[in-house]
Write a protein that binds this DNA or RNA. Structure first.
Lengths: 222, 222
DNA sequence: CCGTTTGGAGAGTGGCACTATCTAAGCATG
DNA sequence: CATGCTTAGATAGTGCCACTCTCCAAACGG
Protein backbone atom coordinates (compact mmCIF):
# COMPACT_ATOMS: atom_id res chain seq x y z
CA UNK A 1 0.00 0.00 0.00
CA UNK A 2 1.02 3.61 -0.50
CA UNK A 3 1.75 6.18 2.17
CA UNK A 4 -1.67 7.74 1.65
CA UNK A 5 -3.43 4.47 2.34
CA UNK A 6 -1.21 3.80 5.34
CA UNK A 7 -2.33 7.16 6.61
CA UNK A 8 -5.99 6.52 5.91
CA UNK A 9 -5.98 3.09 7.53
CA UNK A 10 -4.09 4.23 10.64
CA UNK A 11 -5.63 7.64 11.05
CA UNK A 12 -2.16 9.19 11.27
CA UNK A 13 -1.48 12.23 9.02
CA UNK A 14 0.95 11.60 6.14
CA UNK A 15 3.23 14.35 7.42
CA UNK A 16 3.54 12.54 10.72
CA UNK A 17 4.24 9.21 9.02
CA UNK A 18 7.00 10.87 7.01
CA UNK A 19 8.38 12.25 10.26
CA UNK A 20 8.38 8.79 11.82
CA UNK A 21 10.13 7.37 8.75
CA UNK A 22 12.77 10.08 8.99
CA UNK A 23 13.24 9.43 12.70
CA UNK A 24 13.65 5.71 12.12
CA UNK A 25 10.55 4.73 14.07
CA UNK A 26 9.19 3.09 10.96
CA UNK A 27 11.31 1.09 8.51
CA UNK A 28 11.36 2.52 4.97
CA UNK A 29 8.95 1.05 2.46
CA UNK A 30 9.98 -1.09 -0.48
CA UNK A 31 11.08 1.37 -3.13
CA UNK A 32 9.08 0.93 -6.33
CA UNK A 33 10.44 3.91 -8.19
CA UNK A 34 12.25 7.13 -7.42
CA UNK A 35 9.11 8.62 -5.96
CA UNK A 36 7.03 5.64 -4.93
CA UNK A 37 7.29 3.23 -2.07
CA UNK A 38 5.17 0.28 -1.11
CA UNK A 39 4.22 -0.46 2.50
CA UNK A 40 3.04 -3.76 3.95
CA UNK A 41 0.68 -4.77 6.71
CA UNK A 42 3.69 -4.95 9.00
CA UNK A 43 4.19 -1.21 8.54
CA UNK A 44 0.62 -0.57 9.57
CA UNK A 45 1.07 -2.67 12.70
CA UNK A 46 4.34 -0.98 13.55
CA UNK A 47 2.77 2.42 13.02
CA UNK A 48 -0.03 1.56 15.40
CA UNK A 49 2.51 0.40 17.96
CA UNK A 50 4.44 3.64 17.63
CA UNK A 51 1.30 5.68 18.09
CA UNK A 52 0.31 3.65 21.14
CA UNK A 53 3.74 4.01 22.73
CA UNK A 54 3.97 7.73 22.02
CA UNK A 55 0.43 8.86 22.73
CA UNK A 56 -0.86 6.50 25.40
CA UNK A 57 2.42 5.30 26.87
CA UNK A 58 3.98 8.80 26.74
CA UNK A 59 7.23 7.34 25.49
CA UNK A 60 9.45 10.05 23.92
CA UNK A 61 10.22 9.61 20.23
CA UNK A 62 13.92 9.02 20.90
CA UNK A 63 13.19 6.27 23.44
CA UNK A 64 10.63 4.70 21.15
CA UNK A 65 13.27 4.45 18.44
CA UNK A 66 15.67 2.72 20.81
CA UNK A 67 12.97 0.30 21.89
CA UNK A 68 11.91 -0.55 18.36
CA UNK A 69 15.39 -0.94 16.96
CA UNK A 70 16.25 -3.25 19.85
CA UNK A 71 13.25 -5.41 18.94
CA UNK A 72 14.71 -6.20 15.54
CA UNK A 73 18.41 -6.15 16.35
CA UNK A 74 19.65 -9.35 14.75
CA UNK A 75 22.88 -9.26 16.71
CA UNK A 76 20.99 -9.96 19.92
CA UNK A 77 19.09 -13.04 20.94
CA UNK A 78 15.49 -13.07 22.03
CA UNK A 79 15.92 -12.21 25.70
CA UNK A 80 18.70 -9.69 25.09
CA UNK A 81 16.45 -7.85 22.66
CA UNK A 82 13.68 -7.72 25.17
CA UNK A 83 16.02 -6.59 27.90
CA UNK A 84 17.47 -3.81 25.75
CA UNK A 85 14.01 -2.72 24.65
CA UNK A 86 12.55 -2.54 28.14
CA UNK A 87 15.74 -0.92 29.41
CA UNK A 88 15.19 1.94 26.96
CA UNK A 89 11.61 2.42 28.03
CA UNK A 90 11.15 4.58 31.09
CA UNK A 91 11.94 8.21 31.45
CA UNK A 92 12.42 9.61 34.90
CA UNK A 93 14.48 12.66 35.82
CA UNK A 94 18.12 11.94 36.53
CA UNK A 95 19.06 12.18 40.21
CA UNK A 96 20.60 15.51 41.10
CA UNK A 97 22.76 14.52 44.03
CA UNK A 98 23.87 11.48 45.97
CA UNK A 99 23.22 12.79 49.46
CA UNK A 100 22.23 11.16 52.73
CA UNK A 101 18.55 10.96 51.83
CA UNK A 102 19.37 9.10 48.65
CA UNK A 103 21.66 6.69 50.46
CA UNK A 104 18.86 5.98 52.90
CA UNK A 105 16.42 5.39 50.08
CA UNK A 106 18.84 3.06 48.36
CA UNK A 107 19.26 1.10 51.56
CA UNK A 108 15.50 0.84 51.99
CA UNK A 109 15.05 -0.38 48.43
CA UNK A 110 17.86 -2.89 48.77
CA UNK A 111 16.31 -4.18 51.98
CA UNK A 112 13.02 -4.63 50.18
CA UNK A 113 14.57 -6.41 47.22
CA UNK A 114 16.57 -8.65 49.50
CA UNK A 115 13.52 -9.54 51.52
CA UNK A 116 11.70 -10.50 48.32
CA UNK A 117 14.67 -12.48 47.14
CA UNK A 118 14.82 -10.42 43.97
CA UNK A 119 18.50 -11.01 43.66
CA UNK A 120 18.68 -10.38 39.96
CA UNK A 121 17.38 -6.86 40.40
CA UNK A 122 19.85 -6.26 43.19
CA UNK A 123 22.87 -7.51 41.37
CA UNK A 124 23.01 -7.28 37.62
CA UNK A 125 20.34 -4.65 37.20
CA UNK A 126 20.98 -2.48 40.22
CA UNK A 127 21.34 0.50 37.95
CA UNK A 128 18.42 -0.31 35.72
CA UNK A 129 16.07 2.53 34.86
CA UNK A 130 13.35 0.92 36.95
CA UNK A 131 15.61 0.66 39.99
CA UNK A 132 16.68 4.26 39.65
CA UNK A 133 13.11 5.41 39.19
CA UNK A 134 12.17 3.58 42.35
CA UNK A 135 14.97 5.16 44.36
CA UNK A 136 14.14 8.61 43.01
CA UNK A 137 10.51 8.21 43.99
CA UNK A 138 11.40 7.08 47.50
CA UNK A 139 13.79 10.02 47.83
CA UNK A 140 11.11 12.44 46.70
CA UNK A 141 8.60 11.01 49.12
CA UNK A 142 11.11 11.23 51.95
CA UNK A 143 12.00 14.85 51.20
CA UNK A 144 8.30 15.68 51.19
CA UNK A 145 7.93 14.26 54.66
CA UNK A 146 6.50 10.89 53.66
CA UNK A 147 9.24 8.46 54.58
CA UNK A 148 8.51 4.99 53.28
CA UNK A 149 10.11 2.00 54.86
CA UNK A 150 10.58 -1.37 53.24
CA UNK A 151 7.39 -2.39 55.04
CA UNK A 152 5.49 0.45 53.45
CA UNK A 153 6.74 -0.55 50.03
CA UNK A 154 6.04 -4.23 50.48
CA UNK A 155 2.36 -4.15 49.40
CA UNK A 156 3.33 -2.41 46.17
CA UNK A 157 6.09 -4.92 45.55
CA UNK A 158 3.69 -7.82 46.11
CA UNK A 159 1.22 -6.29 43.70
CA UNK A 160 4.05 -5.82 41.21
CA UNK A 161 5.06 -9.44 41.54
CA UNK A 162 1.57 -10.76 40.95
CA UNK A 163 1.11 -8.48 37.98
CA UNK A 164 4.44 -9.54 36.52
CA UNK A 165 3.29 -13.16 36.63
CA UNK A 166 0.05 -12.17 34.92
CA UNK A 167 1.97 -10.17 32.34
CA UNK A 168 4.30 -13.01 31.44
CA UNK A 169 1.38 -15.42 31.22
CA UNK A 170 -0.27 -13.04 28.77
CA UNK A 171 2.90 -12.82 26.70
CA UNK A 172 3.24 -16.58 26.62
CA UNK A 173 -0.04 -16.78 24.75
CA UNK A 174 1.86 -15.74 21.66
CA UNK A 175 3.73 -18.30 19.68
CA UNK A 176 6.47 -16.71 17.65
CA UNK A 177 9.40 -14.88 19.25
CA UNK A 178 8.64 -11.77 17.22
CA UNK A 179 5.07 -11.68 18.43
CA UNK A 180 6.24 -12.19 21.99
CA UNK A 181 8.70 -9.32 21.74
CA UNK A 182 6.12 -6.90 20.48
CA UNK A 183 3.59 -8.14 22.99
CA UNK A 184 6.06 -7.72 25.84
CA UNK A 185 6.71 -4.10 24.97
CA UNK A 186 3.09 -3.29 24.18
CA UNK A 187 1.71 -4.94 27.29
CA UNK A 188 4.36 -3.53 29.60
CA UNK A 189 3.69 -0.01 28.45
CA UNK A 190 -0.04 -0.10 27.76
CA UNK A 191 -1.07 -1.89 30.92
CA UNK A 192 0.55 0.88 32.94
CA UNK A 193 -2.30 3.35 32.40
CA UNK A 194 -4.72 0.46 32.91
CA UNK A 195 -3.21 -0.29 36.29
CA UNK A 196 -2.98 3.35 37.36
CA UNK A 197 -6.53 4.17 36.40
CA UNK A 198 -7.86 1.07 38.12
CA UNK A 199 -5.97 2.12 41.25
CA UNK A 200 -7.54 5.59 41.08
CA UNK A 201 -11.00 4.14 40.57
CA UNK A 202 -10.44 1.74 43.46
CA UNK A 203 -9.28 4.61 45.65
CA UNK A 204 -12.47 6.52 44.98
CA UNK A 205 -14.48 3.38 45.63
CA UNK A 206 -12.69 2.55 48.85
CA UNK A 207 -12.91 6.15 49.99
CA UNK A 208 -16.65 6.10 49.43
CA UNK A 209 -16.87 2.85 51.28
CA UNK A 210 -15.07 4.31 54.29
CA UNK A 211 -16.34 7.86 54.43
CA UNK A 212 -19.55 7.37 52.57
CA UNK A 213 -19.96 10.49 50.49
CA UNK A 214 -19.38 10.92 46.77
CA UNK A 215 -15.83 11.94 46.04
CA UNK A 216 -16.62 14.37 43.29
CA UNK A 217 -17.42 17.96 44.21
CA UNK A 218 -20.21 19.70 42.38
CA UNK A 219 -19.18 23.12 41.28
CA UNK A 220 -16.22 22.59 39.00
CA UNK A 221 -15.06 21.55 35.62
CA UNK A 222 -17.65 21.93 32.93
CA UNK B 1 12.27 33.74 55.13
CA UNK B 2 13.05 35.57 51.90
CA UNK B 3 12.75 34.24 48.39
CA UNK B 4 16.50 33.66 48.23
CA UNK B 5 16.43 31.47 51.31
CA UNK B 6 13.38 29.61 50.03
CA UNK B 7 15.41 28.91 46.92
CA UNK B 8 18.48 27.84 48.86
CA UNK B 9 16.56 25.52 51.17
CA UNK B 10 14.54 23.90 48.37
CA UNK B 11 17.19 23.79 45.70
CA UNK B 12 14.82 25.46 43.25
CA UNK B 13 16.17 28.51 41.34
CA UNK B 14 14.64 31.84 42.31
CA UNK B 15 13.49 32.42 38.74
CA UNK B 16 11.50 29.21 38.89
CA UNK B 17 9.97 30.12 42.25
CA UNK B 18 8.92 33.46 40.82
CA UNK B 19 7.39 31.59 37.89
CA UNK B 20 5.45 29.32 40.25
CA UNK B 21 4.24 32.36 42.20
CA UNK B 22 3.08 33.98 38.97
CA UNK B 23 1.31 30.79 37.92
CA UNK B 24 -0.46 30.52 41.24
CA UNK B 25 1.19 27.24 42.21
CA UNK B 26 2.58 28.91 45.31
CA UNK B 27 0.59 31.40 47.39
CA UNK B 28 2.19 34.87 47.59
CA UNK B 29 4.31 35.63 50.62
CA UNK B 30 3.33 38.02 53.36
CA UNK B 31 4.19 41.45 52.01
CA UNK B 32 6.59 43.27 54.30
CA UNK B 33 7.19 46.27 52.09
CA UNK B 34 6.80 47.18 48.45
CA UNK B 35 9.75 45.02 47.47
CA UNK B 36 9.99 42.47 50.25
CA UNK B 37 7.93 39.44 51.07
CA UNK B 38 8.23 36.95 53.86
CA UNK B 39 7.73 33.21 53.28
CA UNK B 40 6.91 30.58 55.88
CA UNK B 41 7.74 26.93 56.33
CA UNK B 42 4.43 26.17 54.68
CA UNK B 43 5.72 27.77 51.48
CA UNK B 44 8.75 25.53 51.55
CA UNK B 45 6.58 22.46 51.99
CA UNK B 46 4.25 23.56 49.21
CA UNK B 47 7.19 24.24 46.94
CA UNK B 48 8.54 20.76 47.55
CA UNK B 49 5.11 19.32 46.76
CA UNK B 50 4.94 21.27 43.52
CA UNK B 51 8.37 20.06 42.49
CA UNK B 52 7.46 16.48 43.31
CA UNK B 53 4.21 16.65 41.35
CA UNK B 54 5.79 18.34 38.34
CA UNK B 55 9.11 16.51 38.12
CA UNK B 56 8.41 13.04 39.46
CA UNK B 57 4.66 12.86 38.95
CA UNK B 58 4.87 14.54 35.52
CA UNK B 59 1.83 16.61 36.33
CA UNK B 60 1.56 19.62 33.96
CA UNK B 61 1.76 23.04 35.61
CA UNK B 62 -1.84 23.88 34.76
CA UNK B 63 -3.14 20.65 36.33
CA UNK B 64 -0.95 21.14 39.37
CA UNK B 65 -2.51 24.55 39.88
CA UNK B 66 -6.00 23.06 39.72
CA UNK B 67 -5.03 20.36 42.19
CA UNK B 68 -3.43 22.75 44.64
CA UNK B 69 -6.17 25.36 44.54
CA UNK B 70 -8.73 22.62 45.14
CA UNK B 71 -6.82 21.58 48.26
CA UNK B 72 -7.40 24.96 49.88
CA UNK B 73 -10.77 25.85 48.42
CA UNK B 74 -12.74 26.96 51.47
CA UNK B 75 -16.03 26.65 49.65
CA UNK B 76 -15.64 22.88 49.51
CA UNK B 77 -15.63 20.42 52.35
CA UNK B 78 -12.91 17.90 53.00
CA UNK B 79 -14.00 15.14 50.65
CA UNK B 80 -15.08 17.51 47.90
CA UNK B 81 -11.66 19.12 47.94
CA UNK B 82 -9.99 15.77 47.63
CA UNK B 83 -12.33 14.71 44.86
CA UNK B 84 -11.75 17.88 42.89
CA UNK B 85 -8.01 17.64 43.39
CA UNK B 86 -7.73 14.04 42.26
CA UNK B 87 -10.15 14.77 39.42
CA UNK B 88 -7.73 17.36 38.06
CA UNK B 89 -4.77 15.03 38.27
CA UNK B 90 -4.34 12.75 35.30
CA UNK B 91 -3.60 13.73 31.77
CA UNK B 92 -4.41 11.27 29.04
CA UNK B 93 -5.12 12.14 25.41
CA UNK B 94 -8.74 12.90 24.69
CA UNK B 95 -10.51 10.18 22.72
CA UNK B 96 -10.69 10.94 19.02
CA UNK B 97 -13.82 9.06 18.06
CA UNK B 98 -16.60 7.06 19.60
CA UNK B 99 -16.53 4.11 17.25
CA UNK B 100 -17.35 0.44 17.60
CA UNK B 101 -14.03 -0.44 19.22
CA UNK B 102 -14.58 2.19 21.90
CA UNK B 103 -18.10 0.98 22.57
CA UNK B 104 -16.73 -2.53 23.02
CA UNK B 105 -14.06 -1.28 25.38
CA UNK B 106 -16.62 0.64 27.38
CA UNK B 107 -18.74 -2.47 27.67
CA UNK B 108 -15.77 -4.52 28.82
CA UNK B 109 -14.87 -1.94 31.45
CA UNK B 110 -18.44 -1.68 32.66
CA UNK B 111 -18.61 -5.46 32.93
CA UNK B 112 -15.46 -5.43 35.01
CA UNK B 113 -16.68 -2.67 37.30
CA UNK B 114 -20.02 -4.36 37.73
CA UNK B 115 -18.38 -7.64 38.56
CA UNK B 116 -16.29 -5.92 41.23
CA UNK B 117 -19.33 -4.12 42.54
CA UNK B 118 -17.66 -0.79 42.01
CA UNK B 119 -20.98 0.92 41.57
CA UNK B 120 -19.77 4.38 42.43
CA UNK B 121 -17.27 4.31 39.61
CA UNK B 122 -19.92 3.09 37.23
CA UNK B 123 -22.51 5.66 38.11
CA UNK B 124 -21.46 9.01 39.43
CA UNK B 125 -17.93 8.97 38.10
CA UNK B 126 -18.42 7.16 34.83
CA UNK B 127 -16.79 10.07 33.05
CA UNK B 128 -13.99 10.55 35.54
CA UNK B 129 -10.51 11.01 34.11
CA UNK B 130 -9.50 7.62 35.47
CA UNK B 131 -12.44 5.89 33.80
CA UNK B 132 -11.71 7.57 30.50
CA UNK B 133 -8.04 6.75 30.74
CA UNK B 134 -8.93 3.13 31.33
CA UNK B 135 -11.24 3.00 28.33
CA UNK B 136 -8.67 4.71 26.12
CA UNK B 137 -6.03 2.21 27.14
CA UNK B 138 -8.29 -0.74 26.43
CA UNK B 139 -9.18 0.75 23.04
CA UNK B 140 -5.52 1.23 22.20
CA UNK B 141 -4.70 -2.33 23.19
CA UNK B 142 -7.59 -3.64 21.12
CA UNK B 143 -6.57 -1.68 18.02
CA UNK B 144 -3.05 -3.02 18.40
CA UNK B 145 -4.37 -6.56 18.34
CA UNK B 146 -4.29 -7.18 22.08
CA UNK B 147 -7.93 -7.44 23.03
CA UNK B 148 -8.41 -7.54 26.75
CA UNK B 149 -11.50 -9.01 28.24
CA UNK B 150 -12.88 -8.27 31.67
CA UNK B 151 -11.12 -11.45 32.75
CA UNK B 152 -7.81 -10.15 31.50
CA UNK B 153 -8.30 -6.90 33.38
CA UNK B 154 -9.41 -8.57 36.59
CA UNK B 155 -5.91 -9.16 38.04
CA UNK B 156 -5.05 -5.50 37.56
CA UNK B 157 -8.30 -4.41 39.16
CA UNK B 158 -7.66 -6.76 42.05
CA UNK B 159 -4.21 -5.31 42.54
CA UNK B 160 -5.67 -1.81 42.31
CA UNK B 161 -8.17 -2.57 45.02
CA UNK B 162 -5.57 -3.91 47.43
CA UNK B 163 -3.34 -0.93 46.78
CA UNK B 164 -6.21 1.48 47.32
CA UNK B 165 -6.79 -0.04 50.75
CA UNK B 166 -3.10 0.33 51.53
CA UNK B 167 -3.14 3.90 50.27
CA UNK B 168 -6.08 4.95 52.41
CA UNK B 169 -4.54 3.26 55.45
CA UNK B 170 -1.42 5.30 54.86
CA UNK B 171 -3.43 8.50 54.56
CA UNK B 172 -5.29 7.76 57.75
CA UNK B 173 -2.03 7.90 59.66
CA UNK B 174 -2.30 11.66 59.44
CA UNK B 175 -4.42 13.51 61.92
CA UNK B 176 -5.47 16.85 60.56
CA UNK B 177 -7.67 17.18 57.46
CA UNK B 178 -5.10 19.42 55.80
CA UNK B 179 -2.35 16.88 56.29
CA UNK B 180 -4.63 14.16 54.94
CA UNK B 181 -5.43 16.17 51.85
CA UNK B 182 -1.81 16.80 51.01
CA UNK B 183 -0.93 13.21 51.81
CA UNK B 184 -3.69 11.91 49.56
CA UNK B 185 -2.45 13.89 46.59
CA UNK B 186 1.22 13.24 47.26
CA UNK B 187 0.80 9.53 47.85
CA UNK B 188 -1.56 9.02 44.91
CA UNK B 189 0.87 10.65 42.54
CA UNK B 190 4.21 9.63 43.98
CA UNK B 191 3.41 5.99 44.55
CA UNK B 192 2.61 5.65 40.87
CA UNK B 193 6.26 5.55 39.78
CA UNK B 194 6.96 3.31 42.79
CA UNK B 195 4.35 0.84 41.63
CA UNK B 196 5.38 0.95 37.98
CA UNK B 197 9.06 0.49 38.69
CA UNK B 198 8.38 -2.39 41.07
CA UNK B 199 6.30 -4.01 38.34
CA UNK B 200 9.15 -3.62 35.87
CA UNK B 201 11.64 -5.05 38.34
CA UNK B 202 9.29 -7.93 39.09
CA UNK B 203 8.88 -8.59 35.38
CA UNK B 204 12.62 -8.84 34.92
CA UNK B 205 12.84 -11.07 37.96
CA UNK B 206 10.01 -13.33 36.86
CA UNK B 207 11.37 -13.45 33.33
CA UNK B 208 14.72 -14.54 34.65
CA UNK B 209 13.02 -17.11 36.82
CA UNK B 210 11.21 -18.59 33.82
CA UNK B 211 13.70 -18.34 31.01
CA UNK B 212 16.76 -17.14 32.83
CA UNK B 213 20.40 -17.91 33.00
CA UNK B 214 21.32 -21.58 33.13
CA UNK B 215 22.85 -21.05 36.60
CA UNK B 216 19.81 -20.38 38.65
CA UNK B 217 16.80 -20.32 36.38
CA UNK B 218 14.97 -23.58 36.03
CA UNK B 219 12.03 -23.93 33.74
CA UNK B 220 9.46 -23.41 36.41
CA UNK B 221 6.27 -22.33 34.70
CA UNK B 222 3.63 -20.50 36.66
C1' DC C 1 24.58 58.08 50.38
C1' DC C 2 25.25 54.38 47.34
C1' DG C 3 26.10 49.62 46.06
C1' DT C 4 23.47 45.48 46.50
C1' DT C 5 19.34 42.89 46.98
C1' DT C 6 14.52 42.12 46.31
C1' DG C 7 9.99 41.33 44.05
C1' DG C 8 7.66 41.78 39.98
C1' DA C 9 6.69 41.65 34.97
C1' DG C 10 7.59 40.72 30.15
C1' DA C 11 10.24 38.73 26.79
C1' DG C 12 13.24 35.10 25.44
C1' DT C 13 15.03 30.07 25.28
C1' DG C 14 15.31 25.23 24.33
C1' DG C 15 13.21 20.94 23.70
C1' DC C 16 9.83 18.28 21.54
C1' DA C 17 6.32 16.51 18.48
C1' DC C 18 4.72 17.49 14.89
C1' DT C 19 3.23 20.27 10.38
C1' DA C 20 3.56 23.18 6.32
C1' DT C 21 6.05 24.18 2.26
C1' DC C 22 8.81 23.14 -1.50
C1' DT C 23 10.87 20.31 -5.23
C1' DA C 24 11.51 16.94 -8.49
C1' DA C 25 9.89 12.92 -10.21
C1' DG C 26 6.24 9.84 -11.44
C1' DC C 27 1.49 8.22 -13.21
C1' DA C 28 -2.74 8.96 -15.45
C1' DT C 29 -5.52 10.85 -19.01
C1' DG C 30 -6.71 12.86 -23.47
C1' DC D 1 3.16 14.47 -26.09
C1' DA D 2 0.80 17.88 -22.92
C1' DT D 3 -1.43 18.59 -18.62
C1' DG D 4 -2.57 18.05 -14.05
C1' DC D 5 -2.63 15.40 -9.91
C1' DT D 6 0.06 12.55 -6.58
C1' DT D 7 4.12 11.00 -4.28
C1' DA D 8 8.67 10.78 -1.55
C1' DG D 9 11.82 13.32 0.50
C1' DA D 10 14.02 17.34 2.54
C1' DT D 11 13.90 21.85 5.02
C1' DA D 12 12.01 25.06 7.68
C1' DG D 13 8.42 26.55 10.61
C1' DT D 14 4.71 26.06 14.43
C1' DG D 15 2.71 25.60 18.96
C1' DC D 16 3.22 24.27 23.45
C1' DC D 17 5.45 24.04 27.72
C1' DA D 18 8.53 24.70 31.50
C1' DC D 19 11.34 27.38 32.60
C1' DT D 20 15.03 31.39 32.43
C1' DC D 21 16.80 35.95 31.37
C1' DT D 22 16.66 40.85 31.64
C1' DC D 23 15.21 44.85 33.28
C1' DC D 24 13.19 48.12 36.66
C1' DA D 25 12.26 50.65 40.66
C1' DA D 26 11.94 50.34 45.45
C1' DA D 27 14.43 49.47 49.63
C1' DC D 28 17.76 47.67 52.69
C1' DG D 29 22.14 48.16 54.91
C1' DG D 30 26.72 49.72 55.97
Amino acid sequence: MRLAELSRRSGVPTATIKYYLREGLLPPGRRVSATQAEYEEAHLQRLRLVRALVQVGRVPIASAREVLTALEDDSLDHSARLGTAVWALPHGPEPDADDAVRKDARRTVDTLLGRLDWTHAQESAAESPAYRMLVTSVVTLARLGYPCSADDLAPYAHAGRELAVTDLDLIERYESPDEQLEAAVALTVLYEPVLLSLRRIAQAEESERRYGRPERGDGERA
